[in-house]
Structures are given as structure tokens and as C-alpha cells.
Design a protein around this nucleic acid. Structure first.
Length: 794
RNA sequence: GCAGGCGUGGCGAAAUUGGUAGACGCACUAGACUUAGGAUCUAGCGCCUCACGGCAUGGGGGUUCAAGUCCCUUCGCCUGCACCA
């Protein structure tokens, strides 16, 4: 009987002592393969089944690639800055580092239990000064290049708590904790200019092998739209504002304009009589959170400012309103309203009884705005046009000629707010001088190490906890910035650092980067579709432009593992603790090989799948069955013709399926093979050796042990991957179906590639076929070699 | 509302991309071995029918000799975005 407890312990120790999976990063003699997992946040909670699934998937590929002769980089590390550690520190008064280190140790030991073949020499942790020195260094470059900057922007401000809050920390306009009022307020924030990279981020998606849905989510997030910027003069003020529109062709249908309540012009242009109403409205809007504002199917609200804009072509006066249906953060924060052809404008115009001028002919105005195509009317020089594209072109041509507008591409992608008033993050390496100017620290001063504090909670004034470290902040030439970087800073470039993790001269050696990038396979949860995966792409692209990163895109192939659900079909977690499964328990009771095999066999990697305890037992049974096979006296030096074909088929299918991450079908093929061996009651030694290698990536522990029983010494991890003979994998005799009028009526045996005529004869001779053909007329026969015969009768 | 995806036995799922639907596993049934088995082995297992046969890939329609696969339509579920001008 196979003793998994003893054996798994034995091989963990062996791998560790022999550094079995440590990669010589400078060995360029073999082709490289870079298999990467999204590194975990070392929370106080243990690794869950979803981690195991994704990590096992890359591990299977990494293990196969090693056996195929690749030099494989398969590293792991920890995304170790973040809130839970900080909250723990606030509560206990202990340094978050201790908490983090303890959790990392727990995670590491769990990862080792699962049998993941990581190169622990390459381990990184984003909270180590050795690492974040380079996060700060990259930030510094971004700052010097004007991409990281301080910007005045609206934030959710809670006076009572003295802090900025994220959208999800606000409920009904009140702070989640304490229930204090939250208002929107302009404040200086560190941001990274993402829109600058919008076009590159969009283009790069065409070059990578990523899930369609993820690419689509990123495209939507970037939100490219083409149209025009059109200038409107405010009557009697000499000031101008511009609007962005995708429909400049409807310019003659504009009957009013709307500014976002936060628009800088509002207070300047409002008339005395409307002043109170406008300010009141602004105040109401400020009290709403972003989420509330964007809640759909609420009625439109707004106030007339008392001012008028001048139509750029016909000089008509257009009332300027303010309304929160216009967002300050998109476009120019101002719109031209065409109620006849835009549903939102129509809604607003109907409510406030504003003029509606149709400019595109349509019979269908009953249910509101007409957004389709048609013949242009009431449109001066556009009258007679009927095609949107040329009407837009003509309008833009006119606007540019008359200097009151231009073609414009607009993106929805916003600045990445890059500062947190928190302790447990990378300090921003910037000095504020007395005179208000700023400067990045010199390279010698990096890393700028976090100071020790007695109290890690944010101060009442809303300043970062770092502001309490007065001696740390104070510099000869000014004061240090006290906010820290967000969690996603360190994770935006870690894939580069793994390649050369202990380099203290540069973030990684150029030659190594050139050899190892891009990541060949990246596996992680779909929840990072826009956050981490967009930020990393942007940083990588920036570093690529600077000649540091060698490739435009960091992750060539991306796969998201699905969620492992409870056996009730619902997400595991706090809500249904009785349905949650702890992988440690499975390893204890069944072994890591069983856990790995089961999770890989459950179904397609990307699908969400419910847990089944019976399934786990089934996986265990298969491994025991394999073990018994190798223990038995079936292993023989004799050949066996009957197993030849299925062996070669199995090698072929398993190899291809691992490559394409179809682990469930690879495993089923191995089961078919094992069943065939049992049936044949003989196991030729060469097949026995080949098969144990095929199984090794999925079940590394048991196969290491089997390898020993076959008489070998040392690890199986670098033994050459089995090969197959295409000719032998091919079927010689085929059973094909015979259909009559599309219905299956018989089966016949044929030789592979047998002639159509001979196949047809066999089919016609079959008794059941004869029975059906009796007295009928054969109209047509279709013979698809090696597939099927269909006889059409009347 | 928009975008992306999914829908196949009692359950998890396969299906060479238009060619014998349900591989493989779980559960279940019967039998063998056994003091016993929740171990192992053998056989069965989509639904209806004693059978011949019929019906089956969410529903309806179409293309085709042939449809889970392609087209149209409809219903249901999941994910993301959500007044983006």
C-alpha cells in the first residue's frame, strides 16, 4: 500500500536539499520557458482551493517543460504590502512586518506541501527594501518623465474621519465606518497618467494570447471613442468651453449645453438670479458619492445657469445648464445636447421643456430620440447627406477650417490614483521644498525605508501615519512626501524582478531580461482583468520605451482559473463555512498528489466547478490503482502489440493536452491507458517508464517513488519526456457507423484509409442495412473515409 | 441597457471543429472474493419500451445526405461595465 504521508515528506525534503527546481538563470544553452503565477497576498487566512488549482496548472506545464529540455523559470513571491497587515498593526501596536513575515512562512510551507516546483532562490517580497528600492526607482523615473504627478482632482472626503475614502467605503453618502457624511472635494493627489498610454494598451492587446473576455473588458475600460472637440463661446463673457461629441454631424440639432456641476466655468458664468439655485445644486451633487450619481433610471436633475452659449455656425443662443448626468471626469466635463438624437438629452429636454430640433429624418420619434441613420435635414450645408461617416467628416472639415473645433479621440481610461494615506506601502521618494517645488530623491537615497512608528493609525487631520515620524520626514532641503504607494505598485513589475531578484545595481540585468521575457504562461484569477493586468502592462510599456523591459507586452499567454465552488454550487467562504474546503485537510487525508489530480480532473481550468468529496476519493483510487500496477508482476521486459497503439496515443494526447492546459482530458486518457494495461494484464517496461513520466507533472510525489521502484536513482524531474510515433498512434482498424437517411443502423469494421467503394460494399452487405434497403430505392450514398457511411433511400 | 461567455444523463464532464452524442470519473444496481468491508475485481447504467424500435445536447425554426457543432429566433443563467456624450 502506498504511504503518501511518508513519501510526500520524503520528496519535499529531497527537492529542497538538492535544490532540484532552482534554475541557472544564466544558462542560455537551452530554450527558456517562463511560467508564472499571480503571487498571493499573504493574509492571515490560509491558501484556498482556487490557489491550488491555478498554481498546479502552471506547475504541470513547468514540470513537463523541464522534462522536454527547457530551462524553466518558475518562481513565487509575495505581494506583501497592504491593509490587513496594517490593521493588525493598528490593533496590536506591533509592526506589520512581523505579521507579514509570519504569514509568508505559513504560505510557503503550504505551497511546499502541495508539491509546487518553485525556485525558492528567486523568491521576492514586495515589502522588502531590497525589492521596493526598485519600485521607488521606477516611480522616480515616472515622476521625472512627468507621468507620475500631483493633480487636483475630485475625491471622496470625510471631514470627521479626516481621510479620503474609496467608493466602496461609502454607503448612502456616509462613511462605512462611523456613518459620517462624505463629500466630493477637489484635492491634490498623486496620479499616474494612464490615458497617455491608452492607445498602446489598446494596440498591445492584439499581440497577446489572452482570453477574449479579458481583452474585451480591457478595451471597454480603455473606452476609446472618436469624434470631435467643438468650442462654444459663452455670450457676454468672452470665455469659451469645449465639448467632446461622437456626433458632430448633429451640431445643427443642438438646443442647449450642459456643464458638469464641478466645471470650472460654472461659478463664473452663472447669473445673479440663478446664483442661489446653482450653488444649492452644486452642493447637493457634492454630497452624493460617485456610485449614487451613476445609479441608473433615476430622474434627471439640473439647473439653468442663466448664461447662454453661442452656436458656432448659426450664432443661435443656447441655454447653459448644469446637471450631474454630465460627468466632470469624462471628456471635457461639458456637452452639447441634441435631444432629438440622444436619449439622455431627450429625457432632460422633455423634463425641462427645452427645444427639440430633429436633424436626421425619421418616422419614429414617438419613443424618444432617434439614434439611427437617415437623411440630414435642418442642417444647412449637411442637408442632403444621408451617410453618417461622410456627414461627420464634412462637419469636422468645416469646424477645422473655421477654427472652432477639431477631430478628437477620447478615452474613458482615467488617471491611476497612486497615493494612499497609509503606512504599510512603499514610501513615495519625493521631497517637498519650502518654496512648494518638489524633487525626487537621488538614487543613492533609495531605498527610502519606512520608519518605525509607535502608532500606525492615520492622524485625525487626515495625514498619512508617516507624518508622525517627524525626524524621518525632515530633510535638509525640505520635507518628505508622507503618502505611500497603492498595493498594485509592487505587483506592476515583479515579473521582471524574478529574473534577477538579488541585483542591487539595477532592477534586473538587461541581458537576462532580454533572454527571459516575456512570461510564456501567466495564470491567475479573472478578478485582475483591469486592475493589476492593466497597470502591469502600462509599467511594462513605459519601461519598454525606456529600453529597460525588452518586450512591449509582459504576459504572452494568460489564463484565468475558474472558481472552485462549494459542493452546494456556491462560492466557498464565510457565508457557507460548512461547504468550504481547506486544501490542507485534503493533503492530510488523501495526499497532495490526490488534491492536484482531483483539481486538474474536475473540469476545464477556466470553468467554475463545484467541489465533490466523492471526486477526491475517485482521484485517490486512480493513484492507488497506478501504484498497484507498478507493484504487480505485470511489469515485463516483453513487448505487447495490443498496447502499442494506445500507448502512443496516450503520449500524444497527454503531451498536447498539457500544452493547451486541458488537464481533465489528459487525465482521462491516462485512465483509459491504465484500464487497458489491466485488461491486457501485462505492462511492458518501456511503457511503464513512459507512463510514469506522463503522470509526473500532475502527481509528482508518487511518480518520484515509482521511478525509484523501477530501479532508477535520483529525481525523475529532468528525465526526458516520452516521445510517440505518429504512425503507431494512428488507428489501423476503424469501426464506423452506417446511417440510413441520417439514422444509425449498423456498424462495420474497415481498414484505415480503405477505399470508398470497398467501404460501401461492406455497408451494403450488412444484414441490418439490407433489411432497411429492402424494396427501397437508393438515391445517394455518402462515404466519408474513416468516419461514416450514409445511404439515402426513398 | 451595452459587452463577453455559458446552457449536453442523477452529478463533474467528453465529442478529432459538420460525421457513431455521453469518452473518463462520481453516484447507483447486480454479482464475485471475504469473518467483515466504506478495500478490490466483474458486469450493467441517457429517457420511453418485454421487445422491434422511438425520443434525446434549454425551447422553436432553418441550411445539409448528416447539426451539440453553422444560420435565424426565443428563454434561462453567469461575469464585466454602467448617464462615457
Amino acid at each position: 500500500m502506498y504511504n503518501f504521508i511518508e513519501n510526500e515528506k520524503k520528496w519535499q525534503k529531497y527537492w529542497e536539499e538538492n535544490h532540484t527546481f532552482c534554475t541557472d538563470i544564466w544558462d542560455f544553452s537551452k530554450p527558456k520557458y517562463y511560467a508564472l503565477d499571480m503571487f498571493p497576498y499573504p493574509s492571515g487566512v490560509a491558501l484556498h482551493c482556487g490557489h491550488v488549482e491555478g498554481y498546479t496548472a502552471t506547475d504541470v506545464v513547468a514540470r513537463m517543460k523541464r522534462m522536454q529540455g527547457y530551462n524553466v523559470l518558475h518562481p513565487m513571491g509575495f505581494d506583501s504590502f497592504g491593509l490587513p497587515a496594517e490593521q493588525y498593526a493598528i490593533k496590536t501596536g506591533n509592526h506589520p512586518e512581523g505579521f507579514t513575515k509570519k504569514n509568508i512562512e505559513t504560505f510557503k510551507s503550504q505551497l511546499k506541501l502541495v508539491g509546487l516546483s518553485y525556485d525558492w532562490d528567486k523568491e521576492i517580497s514586495t515589502c522588502e527594501p531590497e525589492y521596493y528600492k526598485w519600485t521607488q526607482w521606477i516611480f522616480k523615473q515616472l515622476y521625472n518623465d512627468g507621468i507620475a504627478k500631483l493633480k487636483d482632482m475630485p475625491v471622496n472626503w470625510c471631514e470627521e474621519l479626516g481621510t479620503v475614502l474609496a467608493n466602496d467605503e461609502i454607503i448612502d453618502g456616509k462613511s462605512e465606518r462611523g456613518g459620517f457624511p462624505v463629500v466630493r472635494k477637489n484635492m491634490k493627489q498623486w496620479v499616474i497618467d494612464m490615458p497617455k498610454y491608452a492607445e498602446h494598451l489598446l494596440d498591445g492587446l492584439n499581440e497577446v494570447d489572452w482570453p477574449l473576455s479579458t481583452k474585451e473588458i480591457q478595451r471597454n475600460w480603455i473606452g476609446k471613442s472618436t469624434g470631435a472637440l467643438i468650442d462654444f463661446e459663452v455670450e457676454g463673457f468672452g470665455s469659451k468651453f469645449s465639448v467632446f461629441t461622437t456626433r458632430p454631424d448633429t451640431l445643427f440639432g443642438v438646443t442647449y449645453c450642459v456643464l458638469a456641476p464641478e466645471h470650472e466655468l460654472v461659478e463664473k458664468i452663472m447669473s445673479d438670479s440663478m446664483k442661489d439655485a446653482v450653488l444649492q445644486y452644486k452642493k447637493e451633487c457634492a454630497c452624493k458619492s460617485e456610485l449614487e450619481r451613476t445609479e441608473l433610471n433615476k430622474e434627471k436633475t439640473g439647473v439653468f445657469t442663466g448664461a447662454y452659449a453661442v452656436h458656432p455656425i448659426n450664432g443661435k443662443l443656447l441655454p447653459i445648464w448644469i446637471s450631474d448626468y454630465v460627468l466632470a471626469s469624462y471628456g471635457t466635463g461639458a456637452i452639447m445636447a441634441v435631444p432629438a438624437h440622444d436619449t439622455r438629452d431627450y429625457e432632460f429636454a422633455s423634463k425641462f421643456e427645452l427645444e427639440i430640433i430633429p436633424v436626421i429624418e425619421s418616422s419614429n420619434f414617438e419613443d424618444g430620440a432617434y439614434t439611427g441613420d437617415g437623411k440630414y435635414i435642418n442642417s444647412d450645408f449637411l442637408n442632403g447627406f444621408s451617410d453618417k461617416v461622410s456627414a461627420i467628416d464634412e462637419m469636422i472639415r468645416w469646424l477645422e477650417e473655421n477654427h472652432c473645433g477639431s477631430r478628437k479621440v477620447n478615452y474613458r481610461l482615467r488617471d491611476w490614483i497612486f497615493a494612499r494615506q497609509r503606512y504599510w506601502g512603499e514610501p513615495i521618494p519625493i521631497v517637498h521644498h519650502e518654496d512648494g517645488s518638489m524633487e525626487a530623491l537621488s538614487d543613492k537615497e533609495l531605498p527610502l525605508v519606512l520608519p518605525e512608528l509607535e502608532d500606525y493609525s492615520p492622524s485625525k487631520s487626515g495625514d498619512s501615519p508617516l507624518s508622525k515620524a517627524t525626524s524621518w520626514i525632515t530633510r535638509e532641503n525640505g520635507k518628505l512626501e508622507t503618502s505611500t504607494m497603492p498595493g498594485s505598485a509592487g505587483s506592476s513589475w515583479y515579473y521582471l524582478r524574478y529574473i534577477d531578484p538579488h541585483n542591487d545595481k539595477e532592477l534586473a540585468n538587461k541581458e537576462l531580461l532580454k533572454h527571459w521575457m516575456p512570461v510564456d504562461l501567466y495564470v491567475g484569477g479573472p478578478e485582475h482583468a483591469v486592475g493589476h493586468l492593466l497597470y502591469s502592462r502600462m509599467w511594462n510599456y513605459y519601461l519598454y520605451e525606456k529600453g529597460i523591459a525588452p518586450t512591449k507586452e509582459p504576459f504572452q499567454k494568460l489564463v484565468h482559473q475558474g472558481m472552485i465552488l462549494g459542493s452546494n454550487g456556491i462560492k466557498m467562504g464565510k457565508r457557507y463555512p460548512e461547504y468550504s474546503v481547506n486544501p490542507n485537510d485534503i493533503i492530510r487525508d488523501y495526499g497532495a498528489d490526490t488534491l492536484r489530480l482531483y483539481e486538474m480532473f474536475m473540469g476545464p481550468l477556466e470553468a467554475d466547478k463545484p467541489w465533490s468529496q466523492n471526486g477526491v476519493e475517485g482521484a485517490k483510487k486512480f493513484l492507488d490503482r497506478v501504484w498497484r500496477l507498478y507493484e504487480s508482476d505485470m511489469i515485463s521486459s516483453q513487448e505487447n502489440k495490443n498496447l502499442e497503439q494506445i500507448y502512443h496515443q496516450t503520449v500524444k494526447k497527454v503531451t498536447n493536452d498539457y500544452e493547451t492546459l486541458n488537464f481533465n482530458t489528459a487525465i482521462s486518457q491516462m485512465m483509459v491507458f491504465v484500464n487497458a494495461v489491466y485488461k491486457e494484464n501485462i505492462f511492458p517496461k518501456s511503457y511503464a517508464e513512459g507512463f510514469v513520466k506522463l503522470l509526473n507533472p500532475i502527481a509528482p510525489f508518487i511518480t518520484e517513488e515509482i521511478w525509484q521502484t523501477l530501479g532508477y536513482e535520483g529525481t525523475i524531474a529532468y528525465e526526458p519526456w516520452p516521445t510517440y510515433d505518429e504512425a503507431k498512434a494512428e488507428v489501423q482498424e476503424v469501426t464506423i457507423g452506417v446511417q440510413i437517411n441520417g439514422k444509425l443502423r449498423a456498424e462495420i469494421q474497415i481498414q484505415k484509409d480503405e477505399k470508398e467503394e470497398s467501404i460501401l460494399n461492406k455497408a451494403l452487405e450488412h444484414e441490418n442495412v439490407k433489411k432497411y434497403l429492402d424494396g427501397k430505392e437508393v438515391i445517394k450514398t455518402i462515404v466519408i473515409p474513416n468516419r461514416i457511411v450514409n445511404i439515402v433511400i426513398k
